[in-house]
Each structure stands twice: as C-alpha cells, then as structure tokens.
C-alpha cells in the first residue's frame, strides 16, 4: 500500500527525519511510536507533502507520490487526521463535512455524509454548531469523518487519543477496529503506546528521526526493553 524509502526531511536547516523507511501493507494497521519530538508528525507531514522530504521516495500502491502537492496526494487516496484542534472552527459541523464531501467528489467508496453521521450520531445534533465549539472528542469525530469522506485507501491518524477522556478513547478504539474490518490501511501515530500496540498489527519505533525497532505489535508489547523504552507500565498492556 504505502512504501517509504529512506526519506530525509528538514525544517529549514534542522535535519529531522534521517533516512526513515517504513511500509504498510493493504488492510494493515501500523503503529508509529516514539517520544515527544521523535518525528512522528513529521513523518506524516512528509507523506502528505506538507514538508516534502529532500531525499528518498514515497510510493502509494507502486506509484510515486514524492514531490506531488498535498491536494494531489490526498486525491491519490490518503486521508489525514492531524493532531490537535484542526477543524474549520468558523464553519459549522455540517459545513465542515459538506466541504470534505465536495473535495471528495468523484471518489468511489462507501463513505458519504449520511454514513459518517450514522457512525457518529452525535454529529447530527451538533450539525448546526460552529466546529470551534466542539469538545475534544467531538472534534475527533469530525476530523475522522472529514478524512473518511475522501474514501481513502490509507488513513493517517496523528495522536488521536491526545486529550480525550478515557470513555472516548474506548469509543475511538471501536471506531478504528471497525475501519480495520473494512480493510482500510491505517498509520497510527501515538504517545499512548499501549493503546496503539493493542490495536495495531505492527509497530515502528522512531527515535530522533530514525527507526529504532520494528516488529509485530504483540512482540513489541511483550518486550521488556521496548516497554521500558516507551514507558509502558506492564499492567496496562493486557491483550
């Protein structure tokens, strides 16, 4: 599905990603873990062409997407759910969704505004509300819904659990599981390593812009060394 080959990404002079390679197979959920500032967001921004890598290649389904602009990469079939409160706060919830649907015109796939509202019934009551007034969990629904409307082959989720109440994190777990059942490929960046390792098939661990480990998630979760590195308390990784 996605193949990242030795990319080097910079912010101005600072060399952030130093030869990152990563692969996601069709239908796979891959976790991207690492401490603050490791380069998880930068990896996603590199894929999306927001901070294009200066060296290396990125290919989606065999077709090179390196050097394309962001909207072309989106149209190639990648949905991006950025971290933080990145909804269009001046627009209503419904306008946010309609805008995404308009941008996705011509795509084929199961996702329509109706189906997104079915998945997140809460958004129906909120449809007339300014998106800037939503809670963190509600914004997460909206961001996810907006990305799904693209009918993407691959979904990039950047720290979706950040700032969510535990109940909502459980909901998020169910949503991601459901998307996995629908054969969507997912790259999931997380600080919450136990959440990510619980749900993903494989994981990569980034450190200072380089991949340090990669292995099936169960293996990562069971390794004492990795758990200590990620700071996971052994009790929280059950299953």
């Amino acid at each position: 599905m996605l193949k990242i080959d030795e990319i080097h990404t910079y912010y101005g002079q600072s060399h952030i990603l130093q030869g990152v390679s990563l692969e996601i197979a069709a239908g796979e959920c891959v976790a991207l873990l690492g401490r603050n500032g490791a380069g998880k967001t930068t990896t996603m921004r590199s894929i999306m062409g927001m901070t294009p890598p200066r060296r290396g290649r990125i290919a989606l389904d065999g077709a090179e997407i390196t050097g394309l602009s962001t909207h072309q990469i989106a149209r190639a079939g990648i949905g991006y759910v950025p971290s933080g409160r990145r909804v269009f706060s001046e627009l209503t919830v419904r306008q946010n969704l309609d805008l995404a649907a308009h941008d996705a015109k011509g795509t084929v796939g199961p996702w329509t505004v109706e189906r997104v509202l079915e998945m997140f019934p809460k958004l129906v009551e909120l449809s007339g509300r300014g998106a800037g007034f939503l809670s963190g969990g509600e914004q997460q629904m909206l961001k996810l819904g907006r990305a799904l409307l693209r009918n993407p082959k691959l979904l990039l989720l950047d720290e979706p659990t950040e700032g969510l109440a535990p109940v909502v994190v459980k909901d998020l777990f169910r949503w991601i599981k459901r998307l996995m059942r629908e054969d969507l490929s997912i790259l999931l960046s997380e600080q919450n390593s136990s959440f990510a390792l619980n749900i993903s098939d494989r994981g990569y661990i980034l450190e200072k812009g380089q991949i340090r480990f990669s292995a099936p998630s169960s293996e990562l979760a069971n390794s004492r060394e990795i758990r200590t590195y990620l700071g996971i308390d052994s009790k929280t990784v059950a299953g």
Binding site: M50, Y80, F88, D103
Partner: peptide
Amino acid sequence: ETLAASGTN
C-alpha cells in the same frame, strides 16, 4: 494545510 489535505487545490 488542512484544506489541501482534504483535496482542495
């Protein structure tokens, strides 16, 4: 940026 990621040129 987010608008571009949704597919707008």
